[in-house]
């Protein structure tokens, strides 16, 4: 056992969850540090501009508050993504944060990925941003979970609330659409 494993840095999620249940709060620190950035990126990709940190914290609080219900059939990351997605949708429905979020409308390229402007300088990546922005909401979400987060179709289906087959179709349709957009440009 390496030092990292012993300290929890490299320990699997299940082991860290068990240690946290036994009272080891450092295990929670490792879990948050491991998953918070990807959850925050996912929340931001859903159109949240303000309140991302709040949503991420809420997702962790809810997840840790019901770890007894976590059966381990899916990964902790998938569970966190699912909770975060639900939180974002709830906020959209309630409208409480309407002014802080950008509604993801299909084809709404100009407002979706403004955050990328300062970071993506290359022309090819700007074209890529444009192509991704042309996707439908579901296609874009599935494509990002598959390409950016490396999720399996099963995990994507759990997060988005669809079937594996539907997730696969959405991914390939998104990929074809991106290719066509890049080719047309």
């Amino acid at each position: 056992m390496t030092a990292d494993t012993a300290s929890g840095v490299e320990a699997p999620d299940g082991e860290l969850i068990s240690r946290w249940r036994a009272g080891d709060e450092r295990a929670a620190t490792h879990l948050v540090a491991r998953h918070a950035p990807s959850v925050a990126r996912y929340v931001a990709s859903l159109g949240m501009r303000e309140g991302v940190e709040e949503v991420v914290q809420d997702a962790f609080v809810r997840a840790f508050g019901s770890l007894d219900a976590f059966r381990g059939e899916s990964s902790l990351r998938t569970w966190l993504f699912t909770i975060a997605r639900r939180l974002v949708l709830d906020r959209r429905r309630s409208g409480r944060r309407r002014r802080e979020t950008t509604e993801l409308q299909d084809g709404d390229v100009a407002t979706e990925y403004d955050a990328l402007d300062s970071l993506i300088a290359e022309e090819s990546q700007q074209k890529m941003r444009h192509a991704i922005g042309r996707l439908t909401t579901t296609q874009r979400e599935v494509f990002m979970l598959r390409v950016n987060d490396g999720m399996s179709y099963k995990e994507i289906a759990d997060v988005v609330g669809t079937t594996e087959g539907a997730a696969r179709v959405h991914y390939h349709n998104a990929l074809r659409q991106v290719k066509e957009t890049l080719h047309d440009d």
């Binding site: 948050v32 925050a40 990126r41 990328l116 990546q125």
Partner: peptide, 21 residues
């Protein structure tokens, strides 16, 4: 690379841990 470049606000891990049950 394009998606990873999304500007994500800084996440305070300690604050989240402190808020956990």
């Amino acid at each position: 690379r394009a998606l990873a470049g999304l500007r994500v606000p800084h996440i305070d891990t300690a604050e989240i841990v402190a808020a956990l049950p």
